[in-house]
């Protein structure tokens, strides 16, 4: 049984989605995370154990990414393999037999329409077991506040690509902290630096998707 879980973990790490997927070439023709999860569930495996294996796989690819051994495309293939697993696990999340690591609310701040960076972080966070609420782009502070009201246990992620929208990011951080001082806020985007993030009152600065999930894990432990 654990061999099957190891295989699922390996498929996530390598970004092997299903049998017909040509990627990665050395696993061509073999079952992917999609088929293996189906087999595992049919054989009565605990969905929580399957999820745990997936998280281990995501952690491994994330560590490789941090060491510059792989790059964004590999990370996205792993997220895609994870998405295939999540489709099978969805009913178990709904019944509560499997739980997400936590809720992550993410959006690109008001005045900014860039979404690629935000989408990458969303995919990797989801792939790492987080329930992601993606609010999209050009998100006004009030929308973040409304979402926090309905999800008071969430962590918030703010993205910006433009130097001018960094000001909107700072305002959003301040408005969230004013109403919900206990909410943890993670910020990221090209014009940002760790210093700028600290100055605006954010709890963390992520320069790439992997560092974002590392922060989420850290915040989770601390809460």
């Amino acid at each position: 049984m654990s061999e099957l879980l190891d295989k699922i973990e390996y498929c996530i790490e390598r970004g092997k989605v299903d049998k017909v997927s040509p990627y990665p070439p050395d696993l061509r023709g073999q079952d992917g995370s999609d088929e293996l999860t189906k087999i595992a569930l049919e054989s009565g495996m605990n969905p929580a154990d399957i999820l745990e294996s997936c998280n281990k796989g995501m952690l491994k690819i994330g560590e490789k990414f941090s060491r510059n051994e792989v790059f964004v495309p590999e990370l996205l293939m792993a997220a895609k393999a994870m998405k295939a697993v999540m489709a099978h696990l969805k009913p178990y999340f709904q019944t509560g037999s499997v739980k997400a690591k936590g809720k992550f609310v993410i959006g690109t701040v008001a005045g900014d329409l860039h979404d690629i960076g935000k989408n990458l972080v969303s995919m990797v966070a989801e792939g790492s077991g987080w329930e992601v609420h993606d609010l999209g782009v050009d998100v006004k502070p009030v929308k973040f506040l409304d979402t926090i009201k309905n999800n008071p246990d969430c962590i918030v992620g703010l993205s910006a690509l433009l130097t001018t929208t960094m000001e909107n990011m700072a305002k959003t951080v301040q408005e969230i902290k004013k109403q919900y001082p206990g909410i943890r806020i993670l910020v990221g985007g090209a014009p940002l630096t760790k210093d700028a993030a600290e100055k605006m009152g954010a709890d963390g600065y992520a320069h790439d998707p992997q560092s974002a999930v590392e922060f989420l894990a850290k915040f989770n432990k601390a809460s």
Binding site: P73, E74, L76, N119
Partner: peptide, 16 residues
């Protein structure tokens, strides 16, 4: 790129 990001994110990212 935007369309492909929904189907195959790695491909969408490469197009971008």
């Amino acid at each position: 790129a935007k369309k492909e990001l929904q189907n195959d994110a790695a491909f969408g990212f490469i197009i971008d």
